[in-house]
Simulated assay, not measured.
Amino acid sequence: MTALLIQPEALRERLTRPGCLVFDVRHDLADHQAGRRAYEAGHIPGALYLDHETQLCALKTGRNGRHPLPDRADFAALMRAQGLTARTDVVVYDAGNAMFAAHLWWMLRWLGHESVSVLDGGWAAWLAAGGAVETGARAPSLSEAQAIQGLVLSGKPSMPVVDARAVLSNLDEPRFTVLDARAPERFSGAVEPIDPVPGHIPGALNRPFERNLGPDGRFKPAAELRAEFESLLGGRLDRGIVHQCGSGITACHNLFAMELAGLRGSALYPGSWSEWCADAARPVAKGD
């Protein structure tokens, strides 16, 4: 089984062998061009850039969240165009805290591609380790073998998702626990800098995604993560966890951290708070 995390030194060695795709998904929610500018100014040699606003989400309607999940067939076509085949090893990275890298990791797993790792510490760790830097833009270069092998889309998503209707029905008949990855002040409703309505989904618990990282910006050891999630969730783990955040991105960070901890099987609510609060009929809770 492919390791969920890869260290810069291991990635440097992996790049000397064929069959590896590296994706740079650095992004800034307040400046949607910042990620591409950073990529062109310097990236891991051979890395391709993917944009969270234009490539990794579906068309936004104003009611389906800020980063609606694309159709799986459309996403599969995008990844085929990048050169992904069933035999390809994939490494994804962002600026450093893995919030965007974990999201693409989840999307690839949802597509059915198992061989995908997150660069621990991201671009910052690569530079700190003395990794080589390539500048400018790079386009996918498909070999004849890649074109022949292609990418076969599995019939059923490999990572479970739930929609707003399922979350709403769960309020009256709880079958799972919703875990919110946003900052405590956003969860409580004290502030809301992005979405039009403050607060959280009633009954949800809060686990800010930054708590999955150590002071060095890398993921905490698996045993430490497991202890923290078990302390927060307790017996709720047995009945299922559904992750959410503002728009389905940092929720994947908590889901990834639980996978690291050996707590597998969580689901994602992709629309998250930005979709939930777009309908005034859905209830809103405030406070801790």
Rank of each mutant, 00 (worst) to 15 (best):
103 H>C: 14
250 T>C: 05
147 A>R: 15
127 L>S: 03
47 A>C: 12
87 R>C: 05
267 A>G: 09
39 Y>P: 15
256 F>E: 03
199 G>D: 06
243 H>D: 14
111 L>V: 07
136 G>A: 08
275 E>D: 07
287 G>L: 10
187 F>E: 03
61 T>R: 08
203 G>P: 01
207 R>Y: 13
77 A>T: 14
61 T>Q: 11
71 D>L: 10
38 A>G: 15
143 S>C: 09
116 V>I: 13
173 E>S: 13
241 I>F: 02
118 V>P: 01
4 L>R: 14
245 C>W: 01
273 W>H: 07
241 I>C: 11
165 R>L: 12
75 F>C: 10
250 T>I: 00
70 P>K: 02
53 E>I: 05
185 E>N: 11
70 P>T: 04
205 L>M: 15
130 G>S: 08
15 L>W: 05
255 L>R: 01
222 A>C: 14
22 V>C: 10
68 P>K: 03
119 L>V: 04
255 L>G: 10
192 E>P: 13
208 P>N: 09
20 C>M: 14
187 F>M: 07
264 R>H: 10
90 V>I: 15
271 G>Q: 10
52 H>D: 08
281 A>T: 15
57 C>D: 08
160 P>G: 08
139 A>M: 13
78 L>H: 02
71 D>T: 08
255 L>I: 12
167 V>N: 08
139 A>L: 13
218 R>D: 00
11 L>V: 04
80 R>Q: 14
25 V>F: 03
179 L>H: 05
252 C>H: 01
198 P>K: 01
146 Q>V: 10
11 L>N: 06
217 G>W: 05
257 A>M: 00
173 E>M: 11
191 V>A: 08
31 D>C: 06
182 R>V: 04
87 R>M: 03
282 R>M: 00
271 G>P: 00
147 A>L: 14
17 R>P: 06
192 E>L: 07
214 G>K: 09
217 G>H: 07
24 D>F: 04
195 D>R: 06
103 H>I: 00
265 G>W: 11
113 H>F: 03
50 L>N: 04
156 K>E: 15
239 R>D: 12
154 S>W: 06
13 E>Y: 04
